[in-house]
């Protein structure tokens, strides 16, 4: 079987996304996870953490970009003025 991008993504969804959620629930159920804070025991907390933080980072940065992003020669122009 040829390794394609579609196949890799399918494997990622099944074993990565699905697998990590199932393992997470099982580990929690059998009391194998030991955390310091109560909120860490929320099922799928680290999944939410990863997804939400990553989205906040990308979308937040794009919002910040409205003020911060300038043409490449921004300082050159300033210097010449």
């Amino acid at each position: 079987m040829k390794i394609t991008k579609e196949l890799l993504m399918k494997l990622y969804y099944i074993f990565g996304v699905g697998g990590s959620l199932v393992i997470g629930f099982l580990l929690l159920y059998f009391d194998k996870l030991h955390y310091h804070f109560a909120f860490q025991y929320i099922p799928g907390f680290f999944a939410i953490c990863g997804f939400v933080f990553c989205s906040i980072l990308i979308l937040g940065a794009k919002l910040l970009g409205i003020w911060l992003v300038r043409p490449v020669d921004y300082y050159e122009k300033r210097r010449r003025q």
Partner: peptide
């Protein structure tokens, strides 16, 4: 940490068009 990275990749994959470079300078 493994679960966190799996889902970080998921979000990055959905938003992949936003993480491409743009020919700009950031202040």
């Amino acid at each position: 940490i493994s679960q966190m990275f799996v889902f970080t990749f998921l979000a990055a994959w959905y938003l992949r068009t936003l993480i491409r470079g743009t020919p700009t300078y950031t202040l």
